[in-house]
Computed example of a mutant assay.
Amino acid sequence: MTRLLMVLGLVAINPLAWGWYGGFKANAEWQAQGVKEARERNYPVVCGAYFDTSLWERWTTPRWWEASWCEDYKERL
């Protein structure tokens, strides 16, 4: 048990571990920002077609499975 606590303590104060965690978190935030910008840029085309399809097509067509974010842009169209 003490060895486990010692290893966990060393990992917790290790600057390499914190650097890895910081890089991972920064990358996730950077990617989320890129997705948001891409959606802002493309919502007129993608969401226009998304709302023109039937509910059945949205559920059964792989193209529309990940386009549910268009619901957030419905008021803008």
Results as ranks from 00 to 15, higher is better:
M1W: 03
M1Q: 07
M1G: 02
T2L: 10
T2Y: 03
T2E: 12
R3A: 12
R3S: 11
R3H: 06
L4R: 11
L4P: 01
L5Q: 03
L5A: 03
L5W: 01
V7A: 02
V7D: 00
L8M: 04
L8I: 04
L8C: 02
G9K: 01
G9V: 05
L10R: 07
L10P: 06
V11E: 00
V11C: 02
V11A: 05
A12L: 06
I13D: 07
I13L: 14
N14R: 05
N14W: 06
P15M: 15
P15I: 14
P15E: 13
L16Q: 12
L16T: 09
L16F: 14
L16I: 14
L16D: 09
L16Y: 06
A17P: 04
W18N: 13
W18Y: 07
W18P: 00
W18E: 05
G19F: 10
W20T: 12
Y21T: 13
Y21L: 15
G22P: 00
G22N: 09
G23F: 01
G23R: 05
G23M: 11
F24R: 11
K25R: 12
K25F: 10
K25M: 09
K25D: 13
A26R: 06
N27L: 15
N27K: 15
N27D: 15
A28W: 01
A28T: 01
W30T: 05
Q31N: 12
Q31W: 10
A32I: 01
A32Y: 05
Q33I: 07
Q33L: 10
G34K: 12
G34N: 10
G34I: 05
G34E: 08
V35N: 09
V35C: 07
V35M: 11
E37I: 11
E37N: 14
E37M: 14
A38Q: 09
A38W: 05
R39S: 00
R41L: 04
R41A: 05
N42T: 11
N42H: 12
N42A: 11
N42M: 13
N42G: 12
Y43N: 04
V45H: 13
V45L: 15
V46H: 05
V46F: 09
V46P: 03
C47T: 02
C47E: 01
A49K: 12
A49S: 13
Y50K: 06
F51T: 01
F51Y: 02
F51C: 02
S54R: 06
S54V: 12
S54P: 00
L55G: 10
L55C: 09
L55W: 04
E57N: 12
R58L: 02
R58Y: 02
W59K: 08
T60L: 15
T61W: 03
R63Q: 09
W64D: 07
W64Q: 07
W65N: 07
W65G: 04
W65D: 01
E66G: 10
E66P: 01
E66V: 06
A67E: 08
A67C: 08
S68G: 07
S68A: 10
S68Q: 08
W69K: 01
C70S: 11
C70Q: 06
C70R: 03
E71L: 12
E71G: 09
E71H: 11
E71Y: 11
E71P: 03
D72R: 10
D72P: 01
Y73H: 11
Y73E: 13
Y73P: 00
K74I: 09
K74G: 10
K74W: 08
E75S: 14
R76Q: 15
L77T: 13
